[in-house]
């Protein structure tokens, strides 16, 4: 017999605390914006997630389901845009995309660079909302 651990991501990662609390913050911000816009429902949330954000996508997706329960976001879709790390290379005088987060070197010329230009993002880009039509004149 073998033990199966892969039932709940919270059991094998920090999901119960870190990604879950991030999911709750996400829901709070999205709900507030939706409410302010007079929405009755949030259809989807688009998130920008940098490779250095420290957030595990799978754990966040799990947390999202939990955190959206009984909110305007219930049943909504989380769309994650994963962003690679970009640094500025002095030699090439341009922003370049790293091949791996383990190696902060320009993929073109090999010069090390820690001048981060993209990769720490953890932000809501937009939300898709349902807004009731304005009352039509009889």
């Amino acid at each position: 017999m073998h033990t199966k651990y892969a039932v709940n991501p919270a059991l094998y990662s920090c999901a119960d605390m870190h990604e879950l609390s991030i999911a709750y913050s996400l829901v709070e911000i999205a709900s507030q914006s939706a409410q302010d816009a007079g929405a009755t429902k949030v259809v989807s949330v688009t998130l920008r997630l940098g490779a250095l954000s420290g957030v595990v996508r799978g754990a966040l997706e799990f947390g999202y389901e939990v955190a959206t329960a009984d909110t305007l976001l219930t049943g909504s879709t989380l769309i994650v845009k994963e962003l690679p790390v970009r640094v500025y290379c002095v030699e090439c005088a341009q922003v370049v995309e790293l091949l791996s987060v383990q190696s902060f070197r320009c993929p073109v010329c090999g010069t090390p660079s820690g001048d981060l230009r993209q990769g720490r993002e953890l932000e809501i880009e937009s939300i898709e909302i349902d807004v009731p039509d304005k009352k039509e004149a009889p």
Partner: peptide, 14 residues
């Protein structure tokens, strides 16, 4: 009912 996209651009850990 109409569906629209609302730009937010806000950091979650703001």
């Amino acid at each position: 009912m109409n569906t629209r996209v609302l730009e937010i651009r806000k950091g979650i850990l703001n």
